[in-house]
Design a protein around this nucleic acid. Structure first.
Lengths: 210, 210
DNA sequence: ATCCTTCCCTAACAAGTGTTTGGTAGGTTA
DNA sequence: TAACCTACCAAACACTTGTTAGGGAAGGAT
């Protein structure tokens, strides 16, 4: 029996500053490989190769392959919602809220690109599994925040009333997050620049005004 | 040896009207499962279950699991390009070309929803494999068609000149195709309605004009 | 009645999968 | 020096994977 487990295994909710340095390195490479090839197509041997150790050694740090995925996604979502909640609590108008949410989203893509890519690819079939129940929660909060902002904007006559709000929501949501598939940190554009251009397009359109 | 193979196996480029009825049924269910769970996570036993036969029996109709994927994707892309080429050859202006391409895209999503979903999910790591070289071809033609239309529009002063055309291209492209992940045939909106709303948003923006 | 074709099943194969177990080099602490 | 902890390796485990080989039932053609 594992009577006196040192600690490393099993996720830590409270941040332990002194401890799992190596753990984060391994999670980072795992996330990179998951994002590049997909969770199912990624073998733990491949992760181990990339990290410079053997497959079995990963199980000193993690319970299972799935728990790596779990930790990658939940860490990302925790940080995402910290940013979103700050925006939503600051009492901005609908247009400013939309702008702030979009900008925050591109910043998260910048910081958690692999996690976002994994989320996009895998969340659809992970939702439903009890272990990943927080994904469904997050989806609900997400929809509430975005749809609410859009509807508020329509009510206050800053957003057009002749569009299906639900369709608009989907377009806005998807285009923002799908950027994670081509975005590369350190590329030609900063997250803020991308957000600015994206907002300009979504708010004012790409056609020339008459 | 398989001296006298009846025909069924191996893809048919020229449409044989008398033959592979069952083949198309099986491909349709395979596409559905691939789209729902991802290619790698889908076992041939799962496809067989869904189709009502045993795993080995699939190999009477197909060479391999990969050849099913190949046929699903190439069939879809063939039909997509038939539609696109018609649009591109009809000598429309940039704005009308954009509208026609977007509308045609949503029609393709309506007809080939599983194939589109699979394409979105898997094409990134299939590109490069020699067997799927046509995916890279398609990507190049795709970029050429869309980027060309956008640039022509900027030159003719119908699209804004102050946006990064490449960014605009990515946004337009992604938002159109990602719709396959939530679109359900027979839903509240027809493909043409979705295209109209989407175009209205992209061309004129969601903000109220001053 | 015989043959042939179509379409499927049964049963197995080899390779690859996530995971476990026991061991061990090297540093830290007692 | 002895005991201990950390982080890894070596080797195997049980299971799932895509795929194949051989056979057989049904039905139309001869």
């Amino acid at each position: 029996m594992t009577e006196n487990d040192p600690v490393p295994n099993s996720k830590q909710t409270t941040e332990n500053p002194a401890a799992p340095e190596r753990r984060r390195e391994l999670l980072a490479t795992a996330a990179e490989v998951f994002a590049a090839h997909g969770y199912n197509a990624t073998t733990v041997r491949r992760i181990a190769d990339e990290a410079g150790l053997l497959a079995g050694s990963l199980y000193y740090h993690f319970d299972s392959k799935e728990s790596m995925l779990d930790e990658i996604l939940s860490t990302f979502l925790d940080e995402l919602w910290a940013g979103y909640d700050t925006v939503l609590a600051s009492g901005l108008g609908p247009r400013e809220t939309l702008e702030a949410l979009v900008t925050e989203s591109f910043r998260e893509i910048d910081r958690h690109r692999p996690a976002v890519a994994i989320y996009q690819r895998e969340s659809r079939h992970l939702v439903g599994r009890p272990r990943f129940a927080y994904l469904a929660d997050s989806q609900r909060r997400f929809e509430k925040a975005w749809l609410g902002t859009l509807r508020r904007g329509v009510a206050e006559r800053v957003f057009r009333a002749d569009l299906d709000t639900r369709l608009t929501y989907r377009f806005v949501r998807d285009t923002v997050w799908v950027a994670a598939s081509w975005y590369r940190p350190g590329g030609a554009h900063t997250p803020e620049e991308i957000a600015r251009q994206y907002l300009s397009m979504v708010l004012d359109g790409i056609a020339v005004r008459d």
